[in-house]
Design a protein around this nucleic acid. Structure first.
Lengths: 188, 188
DNA sequence: ACCTGTTATTGACTTTTGTCAAGATTCCGG
DNA sequence: CCGGAATCTTGACAAAAGTCAATAACAGGT
């Protein structure tokens, strides 16, 4: 996690130590709910190992908004920043090792080390850009284009996630994804 | 614009004055291109009056990514922050009055007035949340749901924008939007 | 290893949306 | 105020995706 932050913006050793001092490394088994809809997101967790998803309920089914794998920071960004209840639930999909920072500790780090604000800003920008990329994908018209968009960006993720969840993420239903997949495999 | 910033986070009078000193108020006629794809976004412009859109080219047609009306801040956020070329073009749709701040002036304000960072962070969060809302809309399955999502959130915008542009924004084609609209009017 | 329940695939059919084209309407510049 | 161009609407048809249902494959727990 320290390496990742450093890659966003170089940090002095004292800042690195201060982060290490407040970060909590934990293991979470599959199916752990890290955050429930309606709660306020108090932690930002760097994914050392494992996989999670954020989803919301639409009618009777769960719609996955995004997947978070190694190198990703798990949090409900909006809730974390605005201190308002989250509109989504975050669930661990694969046994995970996470390095978590509490909101208050991060605020303290911002206050004590001004350069940490730049790290925070860069991280926000990056996750903002990922959000925009998802919109780009969703505006694609055909299932085939959406499928390609996903496989090109996350070639390894396909094997790790159930098709039902990928389908809701892509804005299509399970059967359509299955058929699109079969068609694509035939082509190659 | 000052009022809007104040509503995000209260600002001392000196900061207000400093903003007023560097802000440039300008009128832009319809069809002005504020930013071209490939350029770096150097300004953040508060919309006092008027309307603009950001679009990108997909194949042979222009896909509108978002509309920006009164109270909105026009900029290609990602380009503005990362100092990388923008992937989109921004065009004025209705004669507009804009209060513009240059990137360098904003950086100076951040440095001189720490509380301005909070204003900037809140603004980013807000536009991040709007981006997420657009994803929410795009994952709706039927044209009817997308149409309702748009009319509920932007009841006045429908009359001001060509249907072709609204259609690409919603991820459907012109004819589908026209038919959906006709069906909705009949119902009410 | 076996049972059970979830997940994935496939088929037949319906609904929705896209495509192409023609006609109507609106808008704008001269 | 007129004419041309863009925009919007409507229709007929094609293509794509959704729905329902049945079967197959897989995974987790005992």
């Amino acid at each position: 996690m320290i390496d990742y932050f450093n890659s966003l913006h170089p940090m002095p050793p004292e800042l690195c130590n201060a982060i290490a001092a407040v970060a909590e490394l934990h293991d979470y088994p599959k199916k752990t709910i890290l955050l429930k809809e309606g709660q306020i997101s108090n932690h930002a967790c760097f994914v050392v190992k494992g996989l999670a998803r954020a989803f919301y309920n639409s009618g009777d089914k769960e719609v996955t908004r995004l997947f978070m794998d190694e190198g990703y920071i798990i949090t409900s960004w909006l809730s974390f920043y605005t201190r308002q209840p989250a509109h989504e639930t975050i669930e661990i999909l694969e046994d995970a090792t996470l390095a978590c920072l509490h909101h208050d500790d991060i605020e303290n780090l911002y206050a004590e080390f001004p350069e940490f604000n730049i790290v925070g800003k860069k991280a926000t920008e990056y996750f903002f850009s990922l959000s925009e990329q998802r919109s780009l994908m969703l505006r694609k018209h055909t299932a085939e284009e959406k499928y390609l968009f996903f496989t090109e960006r996350h070639p390894t993720l396909f094997q790790r996630i159930s098709q039902k969840q990928i389908a809701t993420f892509l804005g299509m239903n399970e059967e359509t994804l299955s058929r699109t997949r079969a068609k694509m495999l035939k082509k190659s």
